[in-house]
Simulated scan of single mutants.
Amino acid sequence: MSAPVQAIDARAGANRRRPVQGVTGGVLLAVVAVVTLGAPLIAPYDPLTQDLTSVLRPPSAEHPLGTDQLGRDVLSRVLFGGRTALGVSLVATLVATVIGVGLGVLAAFGGRWWDVTLGRLADVQLAVPGILLALVVLAFAGSGLVPLVVVLALSAWVLTFRIARVHATFVAGQPYIEAARIAGASTAAVVRRHVLPAVAPLVLVAATLTFSTVLLLESSLGFLGLGVQPPTPDWGEMVASGQAQLAGAWWVSIFPGIALVVVIVGVQLVGDRLAERFSVQGRAER
């Protein structure tokens, strides 16, 4: 078989795999969403109920994922912990996306001063590790869901901002935008009718990356004891609470860790598929 034919076959195989990967990621996320949202109906036990007679029991028919150091059912805590981790991360991602898009459009249409100022602010933000910013803010603001969401959003808005600014600047220079202005359209109308629809696909792709970053940061803060506070179940806090018993009671940390990995893999697969679909090559192939 000649090299060009082999290249064509390889590309065709890759094109067939990409939709499958996207579907796989979507199925993973759908399953996680169903079991976490349905946790009150699915969980076999109350995630906060302690049973000191069933401490650190291995997985069994009675406790499919075992129990932790306080006798709480790990399966129930993983399900309810997903509601906490995913809910906080989703809200923070939405806030970060709104901030990023708003500031990106402002930088593109607000003049050079806004563009330079916001660009420098984004550079400063990138120079500071997200975990360090979170530690400093939470040390002063204290623990709680609202400070946690705020610090997660402030740590993750830059990616969306940069994408929105670049694409909004490109759209602002198009002839049809000038024609709309000549016709009397206001800046707000131009942004609403032309800029936001053009930016939306790229922002959607960026949101998948932002969600993964936010979820990892939220879990890291929970691991350090600065995220969602006990006894509320949270994946990061569960991994931390079981690390001391990892050798003899591995299930306490491993199962919430697996849940975290499944979600991140699912989001990345969906994000890769969306990126391919909305790319220039993806549009040409369709």
Score class of each variant (00 low, 15 high):
Pro40Leu: 02
Leu48Trp: 08
Ser76Met: 00
Thr53Gly: 14
Leu52Arg: 08
His63Ser: 01
Leu70Trp: 12
Ala43Asn: 00
Ala39Tyr: 06
Pro58Met: 03
Pro64Gln: 03
Ala43Pro: 00
Gly66Leu: 00
Leu41Asn: 08
Leu52Met: 14
Asp73His: 08
Val31Phe: 10
Thr53Ala: 15
Thr49Ala: 14
Ala30Lys: 08
Ala61Gln: 10
Leu52Asp: 07
Gly38Gln: 05
Gly38Lys: 06
Ser60Val: 11
Pro58Cys: 04
Leu52Ala: 05
Pro44Glu: 03
Pro58His: 11
Thr67Ala: 13
Leu37His: 02
Pro47Leu: 08
Arg77His: 00
Leu52Ile: 14
Gly38Ala: 13
Val31Asp: 06
Ala30Phe: 14
Val31Cys: 10
Val55Trp: 09
Gly71Trp: 11
Thr36Asp: 08
Leu29Val: 12
Ile42Asn: 05
Ala39Met: 03
Leu37Phe: 07
Pro40Cys: 04
Val55Gln: 10
Thr53Tyr: 13
Ile42Ala: 02
Gly66Met: 03
Leu52His: 11
Pro58Leu: 04
Ala30Met: 14
Gln69Leu: 14
Leu29Phe: 05
Arg72Tyr: 07
Val55Phe: 02
Pro59Glu: 01
Leu52Lys: 01
Gly71Ile: 12
His63Trp: 06
Glu62Gln: 13
Thr36Ala: 08
Ile42Phe: 02
Glu62Phe: 11
Pro64Arg: 07
His63Val: 10
Gly66Asn: 12
Ser54His: 15
Ala39Ile: 04
Leu70His: 11
Gly25Val: 13
His63Gln: 11
Gly25Glu: 10
Ala39Cys: 01
Val78Glu: 01
Val74Lys: 00
Val27Leu: 11
Pro40Val: 06
Gln50Val: 02
Gln69Ala: 13
Ile42Tyr: 05
Ala33Leu: 15
Gly38Cys: 02
Asp46Ile: 00
Gly66Asp: 05
Asp46Leu: 01
Ser76Leu: 00
Tyr45His: 12
Gly26Glu: 07
Asp51Arg: 13
Ser54Leu: 15
Val74Glu: 06
Thr53Glu: 12
Gly26Leu: 08
Ser54Cys: 04
Val55Thr: 15
Arg57Ala: 15
Leu70Val: 11
Pro40Gly: 07
Pro58Phe: 09
Thr53Pro: 03
Tyr45Pro: 00
Leu70Ala: 12
Gly26Met: 14
Arg57Asp: 11
Leu41Ala: 15
Leu65Ile: 13
Thr53Ile: 09
Ala43Ser: 13
Val35Met: 05
Ala43Asp: 00
Val78His: 06
Arg57Tyr: 13
Ala30Gly: 15
Leu70Gln: 10
Ala39Thr: 09
Asp73Ser: 10
Asp68Ser: 04
Ala61Glu: 13
Gly38Pro: 02
Arg57Glu: 15
Gly25Tyr: 06
Gln50Glu: 14
Val27Arg: 01
Ala61Met: 12
Gly38Asn: 10
Leu29Arg: 08
Ser76Gly: 09
Ile42Leu: 14
Val34Asn: 03
Asp46Glu: 06
Val35Pro: 12
Val31Pro: 01
Leu48Glu: 02
Val31Glu: 06
Pro64Ala: 04
Pro58Glu: 08
Pro58Trp: 09
His63Pro: 03
Val32Trp: 06
Val74Tyr: 09
Val32Leu: 13
Val35Ser: 03
Leu37Gly: 15
Ala61His: 11
Val34Phe: 12
Asp68Leu: 10
Asp68Cys: 07
